[in-house]
Amino acid sequence: MLDTLLTLDGGFLLWLQDLRTPILNAIFSFYTQLGNAGLVWIVLSVLLLLYPKTRKAGFWALIAMLFGLLFTNVLLKHLVARTRPWLVVEGLTALVDEHDPNSFPSGHTCAAFACCVTWARFAARRWVKVLCLILAALMGFSRLYVGVHFPSDVIAGCVVGCLCALLAWAVQRKAENVWRGRKA
């Protein structure tokens, strides 16, 4: 079963590699590197903290990303210890340097979904919700395009990120209930 998954994952990456163009290489390499250490999501969430209308979205996105960091980079990557695709898929070339040897799940994708799902939850306008999810999906796709993750890594990162956003939401509701109880 795992061999079949690895074959499908690797085959998809090789197919995607055949579609690369210089302009897309530059775009996706740049975008994926914005996600290094969750930097773009952290900066944008901190900026949201500056405005009262978006403060909750920024704060809870940071909490969701913290959960994602703990589950993905501290726990799962070390437990699974899956090798990066360019090391095991013959003919695959990575477009960016990746120093973490562990591939599963995608931390970039987890951070993007943890953050963007949280932002989407607080967004009042539907187009903002859609934009948040597109930004997260593009981060996951960028990890595939540059050849540093298997599709199953990105899917797992998406699932873990969404679960971390839900966990942050649950913590938020609990905290608000406690806060309301103390104010009364």
Score class of each variant (00 low, 15 high):
31 Y>C: 04
31 Y>M: 08
31 Y>N: 02
32 T>L: 09
32 T>D: 07
32 T>A: 10
33 Q>Y: 04
33 Q>K: 09
33 Q>M: 14
33 Q>F: 09
33 Q>S: 12
34 L>D: 03
34 L>H: 06
35 G>Q: 10
36 N>I: 01
36 N>F: 03
36 N>T: 05
37 A>L: 15
37 A>M: 05
37 A>V: 11
37 A>K: 14
38 G>A: 06
38 G>K: 02
39 L>R: 01
39 L>A: 09
39 L>N: 00
40 V>T: 09
40 V>K: 03
40 V>E: 10
40 V>Q: 07
40 V>G: 07
40 V>C: 07
40 V>D: 03
40 V>R: 00
41 W>G: 03
41 W>E: 01
42 I>G: 05
42 I>T: 04
42 I>S: 03
42 I>D: 01
43 V>I: 15
43 V>P: 12
44 L>W: 08
44 L>H: 01
44 L>F: 05
45 S>H: 04
45 S>T: 13
46 V>A: 12
46 V>G: 10
46 V>W: 07
46 V>Q: 03
47 L>S: 07
47 L>W: 04
47 L>F: 14
48 L>F: 15
48 L>W: 06
48 L>C: 15
48 L>Y: 09
48 L>D: 10
48 L>K: 07
48 L>V: 04
49 L>T: 02
49 L>R: 01
49 L>H: 02
49 L>Q: 01
49 L>G: 06
51 Y>C: 14
52 P>R: 15
52 P>S: 14
53 K>Y: 13
54 T>G: 12
54 T>D: 12
54 T>Q: 05
55 R>F: 02
55 R>S: 11
55 R>E: 09
56 K>M: 00
56 K>G: 06
56 K>N: 11
57 A>V: 11
57 A>C: 12
57 A>D: 06
57 A>S: 15
57 A>W: 05
58 G>L: 02
58 G>T: 03
58 G>E: 02
58 G>K: 03
58 G>V: 09
59 F>K: 08
59 F>G: 08
60 W>H: 06
60 W>K: 02
60 W>T: 08
60 W>G: 08
60 W>N: 04
61 A>I: 04
61 A>C: 09
61 A>V: 05
61 A>D: 00
61 A>H: 07
61 A>S: 14
